[in-house]
Simulated assay, not measured.
Amino acid sequence: MTPLRSLLLCLILVLPVTPAFAQGTNVAFGTIRQDTNQPVEVTADNLAVDQDSGTAVFTGNVMIGQGEMRLSAARVLVVYRAENKGIARLEATGGVTLVSGPDAAEAERADYNIDDGTIVMTGNVLLAQGASALSADRMSVRLSDGTAQMSGRVKTILQTGNDN
């Protein structure tokens, strides 16, 4: 369990507030709209390229940046468009963290569809927004407008505003 996840789970458990459960909720994600036409910068410890399948696998401390957005993971599969005309999608696995502005999300997996401008995070998703935290099975982020949809046993803590 990462330090961020540990801290947020502790906050969820100890704050004297009312829990809310839902099957889906919309939230803002990040402070800016992401331009999916910007270049994608990838750094990693290792790279394996398969020309026949049009894929590349980055492993070990993978860091991906596009504009103000950052994604890190243990492994990222890059799938290229036909005839090497850019990246079609990224599939990140293993301790995935997505950061945009002050917001951060963790999950077991993230799939970034470049053409759609969406990132779908699955598996124990935890979203931190300032003092607030939300957890769910799945979070879909639409980068064009900076919104996210959380679904699958969504849990959050709502601050009541009372000091007692």
Rank of each mutant, 00 (worst) to 15 (best):
L143I: 04
C10M: 15
L158V: 15
P19G: 02
T55N: 09
R89T: 08
V40W: 02
T2L: 13
D52E: 15
N124P: 11
V76F: 01
K155T: 14
N124R: 14
P102D: 13
A22W: 05
Q159C: 07
E83P: 10
N46I: 11
T43I: 04
S144E: 11
M63C: 14
V120K: 10
I119L: 12
D116L: 14
L9H: 12
G146V: 02
L134C: 03
V79F: 03
A88P: 07
T118F: 02
E68G: 05
L15K: 11
G30F: 00
F29N: 00
C10D: 15
E106P: 13
S72W: 08
G24K: 08
D52L: 14
I64S: 06
A92W: 05
D45R: 14
A131M: 15
Q51A: 12
T97S: 13
D35V: 03
G146R: 01
T160N: 12
S100R: 10
V78R: 01
A82V: 09
S53P: 04
L8D: 07
S135E: 11
G146E: 01
S53L: 08
A104L: 10
I87Q: 02
L8H: 08
G30D: 00
V40E: 04
G24D: 08
R138D: 05
L8G: 07
N37W: 12
V79Q: 04
P19I: 04
P3C: 12
R142A: 13
I119R: 04
V17N: 14
S6L: 12
A128Q: 14
D45I: 13
V17S: 15
Q159M: 09
V125P: 00
Q129W: 04
Q38G: 06
V62N: 02
V96N: 00
D50A: 02
D52V: 15
T59K: 02
Q38A: 08
P39G: 10
A88Y: 09
T122R: 11
E41P: 12
R81I: 06
A110N: 07
G95Y: 06
S72C: 07
P3R: 14
A20K: 06
A136L: 04
S6K: 10
G130H: 05
Q129M: 01
A56T: 09
L90A: 04
G30A: 01
D116T: 11
M69A: 01
D137E: 03
N164H: 11
D163T: 15
N84V: 13
A44Q: 07
A74T: 09
G152M: 03
S140C: 14
I157T: 15
L90H: 01
V49G: 10
V40I: 11
K85G: 04
G95K: 08
D163V: 15
Q149V: 13
A73E: 01
S144R: 11
F21Y: 04
A56W: 06
